[in-house]
Amino acid sequence: MTTDLGFWVLQTLNALQLSMLLFLLSVGLTVIFGLMHFVNLAHGSLYAFGAYMAASLAGVLGYWGGFFLAPLAVAALGAVLYFTLIRSQRRAGPMAQVLITFGLIFVAVDATRLIWGDLPIGIAVPAVFEGQLALLGVEYPIYRLFIIALGLAVLAALTLVLTRTQVGAMIRAGVDNDQMAACLGINVERMFFLVFVVGCALAGLAGAVAAPVLSVTPDMGLQILIPTLIVIVIGGLGSLKGAVAGSLIFGFVQTFGAVLMPTFNSVLIYALLAAVLVIRPEGLLPAKG
C-alpha cells in the first residue's frame, strides 16, 4: 500500500487540506498575539460561530451567501468583543487574558446551544464543487481542493499585504516594537483593532469552509482550539511564516501518523510539540529574534 504512488498523493492532499484549514485559523491568532500580546483562547469559538452562521445563512441564501457573510458576521462579533473586553484587558497580562477568553468559551458554547440547539447540523457542498477530480492518478474531492486553494490564496494575499503595503509595514513595526511604532506616528490602537477584526474574520472563514466537510456542533470550537494552539506554538508566536510552518507540520504529522503509526498517533503530535519546546523554547520561527 505504501509503495503505491497514489497513496502518497492522496495522503499529501489530505495533509495539505488539514494544514490549510488550520492555517486560516492560526494566522489570525498568531498575528493578534504577535502584535497585541493577547492570548485569545476564544478564537476557536469564533470559528464555531462562523460555521454556525454559514450553516444558517446557507439555508436562506445558499452556500455562497454563508461563505461571504459568515466571516463578516464573525468580524462584527469580534469588533464587539474588542470594545467590550479585549481593549481594556490589553495590558492586563496573559493570565487575565487567558481567563477572560476561557470564560468566553463557556459562554459561547452555551450560547450556540441556546440558539442552534444540541443536535449537530450539516450543510451540503456547493454544487460547483461537488464530485471528484482526477489528479496524478487519484480521484480527489473538488471541495477539498478548493480548501487548499483558498488557504494558499489567503496566504498569498497576507504575504503581499504584510511585505508590500504600508499597512503591512506598520503591522511589522508594531510586532517588533509597538511603543516605537507609536512614537513614529502610527495609530497603534486603530491597527490593533484592524488586525483583531481581520483575524476574527479569518476564523469565521475557516468555520464557513469547514462546515460542509465536518459536522457543526457546539463543541467544535473547543475541539479545534488545542490543534490551533499547537500550530502557533510549534511555528513560533506572532509570525506568518511560523503559522505556515506550524500548520504544515501539524497537518502532515497528523495525517501520516494516522495511517502509518496509528497506535502512537494521538501521542505523536504532543511529543513533537514537547520536543520543539525543549530544543527551541520560542518555537521554530518566532516573530522576534
Binding site: 500500500m1 477539498r144 467544535m220 475541539q223 494516522a258
Partner: peptide, 27 residues
C-alpha cells in the same frame, strides 16, 4: 479527536474489500 477521516478512507479504498462496515455516532 479525528475530524478528518480522509486518511483512513484512502486505506479502505486500497484494501480490496467489497464493502466498508463502520460504527460512528453523533457529530
Amino acid at each position: 479527536k479525528t475530524q478528518d477521516f480522509g486518511p483512513f478512507l484512502a486505506n479502505a479504498k486500497a484494501s480490496g474489500a467489497d464493502a466498508v462496515y463502520v460504527f460512528f455516532a453523533g457529530g
